[in-house]
Write a protein that binds this DNA or RNA. Structure first.
Lengths: 236, 236
DNA sequence: CCCTCTAGGATTGTCGACAATTTGCGTCCC
DNA sequence: GGGACGCAAATTGTCGACAATCCTAGAGGG
């Protein structure tokens, strides 16, 4: 009775995702790419009409995004896309630094360095392709895919969960400040070096590269702040 | 017309919190303390009756808890309290280690070490009181308050957000495995040493103490696993 | 001319009922 | 007696309507 394994890979019910999850994902993408700029007010009624669903599932999706920190809810006022201040850029990268550092350590110590390195290299190929196409948006997407893959490779459910929002916020930063990019070759190269250090199992170098990677980004996106000397902007 | 500042501290609208938030907090506490043991199924209808609200706000609260990772939702089946496996204990402490390491660094480098140390010392006093009362539950609560305070002191919105769930899960671990405690004096002492290193601005010692603190807990709660050598249990 | 109060509109918060789906049990056939 | 089929109960998913609350614009008074 049992089918031979591998014949029908991933046969799943027609609609495995809940409606709220679908809506949440669409809104997430819209926020991430800048289609919904920071500060935008999202009316429940209007969105419900646009998605052709009732306000129930839509509210659920919104609540989800609020708890993720992508939307800010003001009681009886409405829901707004969060706007990132300079302090937030610092905060995002400080948090990312903490998460990815841990992920890198677990990736190195997990004993599957080669497999992980291969997965990461695939995303770097994507980055290079986007770079040669001169497509900044695709480049950023591939960049984040690298970091997402790194965190996934750590095998930690909780690191993955915590990083999801951070990466979306990072994408918002990159979208908002599009134009402060470094040279694309340099950007690709930094990731290549990270992979090399990981493959070699060189913890010290890998962590140092990761810190430098974050520090670079912070100084570019929020000039005047720094992760290493604790020169954080005052909390607004 | 303006009242002198400081006369009416924190005068807030009568109902500042949304109904869903109140419900979510109550459920969180119940899960945290073990009143709702892992694996328990939570029926929406039943809970709605217990809280005397409709299913709308209740569902919102549930969704919130699901996205926090405290509940697991099976479509058309129901909501269940997550149950922690040995691998989760490891995962929780690995994630906490990452978060609290970053928080400690920011606390040290933030330039308010004395003020922060004072706040932390207050929680250690609570711990000592609970210890002398021989109240394990209060001791755990105070213990977590210490770590919560440390993370709050970092001033990072995102570290605070990410840590919230982790600390609740930690409390679940402690509740589930009540009895594997170390000597209470030792437990209090470890925190005191942490404060000392923080006040002195000694990053290296502080981080080493923090790592040891986490490592101790992991080896006690999930024997056979270790944070430092990457000996993680296979993902279930 | 400015401040205050009031009425209107709009939005969110809440509720009860209906529909879709799953699970478990009983029945029927082999 | 064992297995498969079908039905029914229970649960979640979804919907539309009502109520509470808040912002805004306008009129009135000082």
């Amino acid at each position: 009775m049992a089918l031979p394994p591998g014949m029908l890979p991933e046969i799943e019910p027609v609609s495995r995702e809940s409606t709220a999850a679908v809506i949440a994902r669409q809104l997430r993408d819209a926020i991430m790419t800048g289609a919904l700029p920071p500060g935008t007010q999202l009316g429940e009624t209007e969105l419900a009409a646009r998605f052709q669903v009732s306000r129930g599932p839509l509210r659920e999706a919104m609540q989800h995004l609020v708890s993720e920190g992508l939307l800010r809810s003001e009681r009886h006022r409405g829901l707004f896309v969060i706007d990132l201040e300079p302090g937030d850029v610092y905060d995002i990268y400080a948090a990312r630094s903490a998460i990815e550092r841990a992920a890198m350590l677990r990736a190195i110590r997990g004993g599957e360095r080669d497999r992980i390195a291969e997965v990461l290299e695939r995303t770097v190929v994507e980055m290079a392709a986007a770079a040669s196409d001169d497509d900044p948006s695709a480049l950023s997407t591939a960049d984040l895919k690298f970091h997402e893959a790194l965190i996934n490779a750590s095998g930690s459910k909780r690191l993955v969960r915590m990083a999801r929002t951070l990466l979306i916020e990072t994408r918002m930063c990159l979208t908002a400040l599009q134009g402060t990019y470094q040279r694309v070759e340099e950007r690709v190269d930094e990731h290549t070096k990270l992979i090399h250090a990981l493959r070699e199992g060189d913890e010290e170098t890998a962590l140092a590269l990761l810190d430098a990677h974050m520090e670079d980004a912070v100084q570019r996106l929020a000039p005047g702040t720094s992760l290493v000397d604790g020169h954080a902007p005052p909390v607004p």
